[in-house]
Amino acid sequence: MKLEFFLNKVILLKKKILLVVLFLLFIIILYGYICNNYSNDGILNNVKKGKRYKITQVQEIPIELFIKPEWIPLNSDEEIKGKVLLELYESTIVLNVTKSNKLFFEFKIKQNMNYNGGQFIYSAILHEDNNATVTSPMLILTNKNKKKIDVSYGIGNSNFAFDIKPENYKDIEEGFYVDYKYVYLHNYVKKF
């Protein structure tokens, strides 16, 4: 009798463990599905791959930004993180500034994707066949007096960055303009 009671308890415990494992597995699968289909990154990845979304139009748009003097840590090692510079077409351009032996300015383009479709900016031309056309960026920096500032720069996954050497700090004391060419506006729509 005691053995039968003990075996029933073990079987009941195994059933409870199995139910908990199945429930956790269901939650993990549901989380993955939601992330892959409804999150910003999931929707952007589906648009880039041509899965469930169609790109209906691509147009080059120029971006001009003004970097205010208070965002330039010339006399300190202060870092600027997450400064929102511009919001347009369901996208946000955010600035991060760090300083070591030179000033490093990083601009991130964050998309705010809509499940049914919309518009966003990206630093490459996206095609529905999972390909992208990347052109060399054209980045022109000028100070308030329209004097061109020499920089070295790079482009990444919807980001761009440059650094300014100490010998050019005098040119940016009052702020400066960043003209960035080869940013593309994409229209996208959910396929039904």
Rank of each mutant, 00 (worst) to 15 (best):
K83F: 07
F66W: 12
F105D: 04
T56F: 14
M1S: 11
K14D: 11
F192H: 15
Q111A: 05
L30V: 14
K102A: 14
V58C: 05
I34R: 14
Q119K: 15
I11T: 14
Q57I: 04
P137Y: 09
W71S: 05
L86Y: 02
P166W: 02
L3N: 06
K16L: 09
M1P: 13
V189W: 07
I61Q: 02
L18W: 03
K108Q: 13
Y153N: 11
V84Y: 03
L12E: 12
I11P: 04
L141S: 00
N116A: 01
Y182C: 07
L103M: 01
N131Y: 08
I29C: 01
P137T: 03
H127D: 09
I72Q: 00
I61V: 11
V47Q: 06
I17R: 00
D171E: 00
V97S: 09
N143T: 06
D163W: 10
V10Q: 12
T142E: 09
L139I: 01
F192R: 15
I17W: 09
F6R: 04
V178R: 04
L126D: 03
F105S: 05
I149M: 03
K165A: 14
T135H: 11
L30E: 00
D179I: 05
C35D: 15
K190I: 11
D150P: 02
F107T: 06
K54Y: 02
I67M: 01
Y33S: 13
N131V: 07
E90C: 06
N96L: 08
I172S: 10
E79L: 00
K181P: 02
I28Y: 12
M138N: 14
Q57W: 07
Y122K: 05
L95A: 05
F26K: 08
A161W: 15
L22D: 01
P137V: 01
F6P: 04
N8E: 14
